[in-house]
Simulated assay, not measured.
Amino acid sequence: MTSPSSLSCNPRPARCSQEEWETRVSLAAAYRMVARLGLDDLIYNHISLRLPGTHDRFLINPYGLLFSEITASSLVKIDTAGNKLEETPHSVNVAAFVIHAAIHKAREDAHCVLHTHSDASTAVSGQPQGLLPLSQFAMRFYNRQGFHEYEGVAIDLPEQERLVAHLGSNPVMLMRNHGILTVGRTPGEAFMLLYYFERAAKIQLSMQAAAASGVPLTMPSPEVCEKAARQFWELKGDILVPGEREWPALMRQLDRDDQGYRQ
């Protein structure tokens, strides 16, 4: 079987450097992975990835394509002022620009910014405390989730300042009554944060449903929750950065099933 690294080099258009093409391939893979898990929302939602060696340029999905249709070559290159940087028949969702440009400008570590309307995370976004420490999946986000109040569709530039302030230094932000945003140094990291948050949110909703019928909830002490969070973020034991182990395996799975995203 051909290795993922060799596949990522072919077919590379002449307009792309090798580094940019590999960036495109990894972002296209993230779109396909979100779609495979059913966490997408038709042609809506968006994932962006900063171009290597730049601060103000990033790739994002063409508005109108399903996540399952996105390929490396179809991604649109824009800057944080909203300018398209190459010829393309595709447009960019206004809300996608407003949200992603704001985060890329403000967070040097936010190479990848991922926003979805995934069901469980959106449901939890409407709860006062957001994600509760009810499972080990949730411990990673204990005291590490931001909250952005709903202001309507995110198409107004003044909202950018509040998006940035509410995300702060957190890896995840719940956009109240709307969805979730994760940031990572790689698409793998941003994707795995979404995956773990969504799993935790589903478990929370299940446990709350049981509690409504009289089954009490149990929650570890704040000290234990913080200890667990630090274990995740300080990479204790054999814990690695989210995506460092999982993403290569997911890429291998994706390549076995469908290599179309690499086009």
Rank of each mutant, 00 (worst) to 15 (best):
D255W: 00
A201L: 07
S213L: 14
A28D: 08
M1W: 10
R57Q: 15
P216C: 01
L157K: 13
L49N: 14
Q129V: 00
R176W: 00
Y31L: 07
S17H: 11
A29M: 08
L66R: 15
E159W: 01
E161H: 14
R252Y: 01
G260Y: 01
L217R: 10
A211Y: 07
G179K: 02
L132S: 10
V183P: 03
G38S: 11
D119V: 10
L75T: 04
R12G: 01
R50N: 12
P158M: 03
F232E: 00
P222S: 11
S68Y: 08
L49I: 04
L27W: 01
L42A: 14
H104I: 02
C9M: 12
A190I: 00
H100T: 03
A190G: 04
N177W: 00
S169T: 13
A110L: 10
A30E: 08
H46G: 05
G38F: 06
H166A: 15
L134Y: 09
I99Q: 09
L114D: 08
D56P: 00
A210P: 03
V92T: 09
R15L: 13
L27H: 03
R245F: 08
L85A: 12
Q127T: 05
P216A: 05
S121N: 06
Q18V: 15
A211W: 06
H104T: 02
V25K: 14
P11K: 14
A28P: 09
Y44Q: 12
D41K: 07
V215P: 01
A72P: 02
P52H: 08
F58W: 07
T54K: 09
D258S: 12
D109P: 01
H111A: 13
R12H: 05
A138C: 05
L240P: 00
H55N: 13
Y195F: 13
C112K: 05
W21V: 03
H117G: 12
H166L: 01
A81L: 12
K202W: 04
A211P: 02
E246D: 12
A95Y: 04
L250E: 12
A154N: 13
H178W: 02
N93H: 13
E198P: 02
L37F: 11
A29I: 05
Q18W: 02
S125M: 01
G168Q: 09
N93L: 12
G168K: 09
L49V: 08
I47S: 11
Y142E: 01
L235F: 15
V224A: 14
